[in-house]
């Protein structure tokens, strides 16, 4: 029986890190879009900005707890090793989390900000100096953050893809797959959060924007998964044997039914059927609340399962043991 060195905590972390990257990207993009000189999706931008830092913060905490010596995590930052994706990733992650928190702060409603600082003792003058309005700098912060959000999205895939000993991971497609999955999870999470927000119901044009964004990312993800499967089948024996894990092996059902079917194609179908009438026939977009709820939840589940399948199946794959699996 193969022992798994990386378990569920790593899966959750990879999902949450990607989710934050996707949320930041979608929110930053919404911040830049305008109609007639007015911001087109200010509420999407605000919601995304306020949500973005939390998943990655929780994920990083889980990552640290997963270490054999969690209190030694600071050693990640006393060394820099450019050949180690994890080393580069820890710096990327830290910078991105910082930017995401600053960006969230820039979007914090005035009243909330005053409430927050009211809790800080008045004698802490240095802290009160931070009580400033960053809203004019939102676009700048978003622009600075874009490369880091993309970086975090890619890095979660590179972490696995750079391991030459695991043929299931070691292709140049895993990084992009994780990136597009992260961006699509971010758009879906934003849609889910806005649908669930009862105080200010989501508006049709916001649903349309998020659904369109999600469709684009899911289609891009599909265009990575298909070549991953095809090229893998046409590759050397070790890669072919590794792919057996999802083509008949123990991860087949979870890959085809739960990830590709329920987590990707079904939500894509729902979203396309919602968008197509307005796109092709010029009909008004309705944006059914329940369908948006179902589609976005399924996309999030799919994003999680993709990481689950890759972390576990990848560790089983190897150059020297695969022959025995058959």
């Amino acid at each position: 029986m193969h022992e798994f060195n990386w378990g569920l905590l790593i899966v959750v972390y990879l999902f949450l890190g990607g989710l934050s990257a996707g949320l930041f990207f979608a929110a930053g993009l919404a911040n830049y879009l305008e109609v007639d000189g007015q911001p087109a999706y200010p509420r999407v931008a605000a919601m995304g900005a306020l949500l973005a830092p939390w998943p990655v913060a929780i994920g990083s905490a889980l990552l640290i707890l997963d270490l054999g010596n969690w209190y030694r995590f600071y050693k990640l930052f006393t060394h820099f090793r450019w050949e180690s994706p994890m080393s580069i990733g820890s710096y990327l992650l830290t910078i991105f989390t910082g930017i995401a928190f600053v960006y969230a702060f820039a979007w914090l409603p005035e009243a909330w900000r005053q409430q927050l600082f009211a809790k800080v003792p008045a004698t802490w003058k240095q802290v009160h100096r931070l009580n400033m309005d960053l809203s004019p700098y939102r676009k700048v912060i978003a622009m600075v953050g874009f490369p880091f959000s993309i970086g975090v999205g890619i890095y979660t895939g590179v972490l696995l893809g750079a391991v030459s000993a695991r043929p299931f991971w070691n292709t140049n497609l895993v990084a992009q797959m994780f990136l597009f999955s992260a961006l699509s999870s971010g758009a879906a999470a934003l849609l889910l959060a806005m649908v669930l927000d009862k105080r200010s119901p989501i508006q049709t044009h916001e649903t349309k924007f998020l659904i369109t964004l999600d469709i684009v990312f899911i289609v891009l993800e599909l265009f990575i998964i298909l070549p991953y499967l095809i090229h893998g089948q046409l590759s050397v024996l070790a890669v072919k044997q590794a792919l057996w894990l999802i083509l008949g092996g123990p991860y087949t059902v979870v890959f085809w039914v739960f990830f590709l079917g329920l987590g990707l194609l079904v939500p894509l179908g729902i979203e396309v059927s919602e968008l197509a009438p307005s796109l092709l026939k010029g009909k008004a977009f309705h944006g059914d609340r329940k369908l948006a709820l179902v589609a976005s939840s399924l996309v999030l589940m799919g994003g999680f399962l993709l990481r689950y399948i890759f972390v576990y199946a990848g560790q089983v794959s190897s150059f020297h043991k695969m022959g025995m699996l058959h």
Binding site: N5, G68, K75, S84, V163, S164, A165, S318, K321
Partner: peptide, 16 residues
Amino acid sequence: DDCIGCRYCMVACPYD
């Protein structure tokens, strides 16, 4: 003394 126990090396070793 420098090992933080991330187990990346265990994942990366082709010989386990």
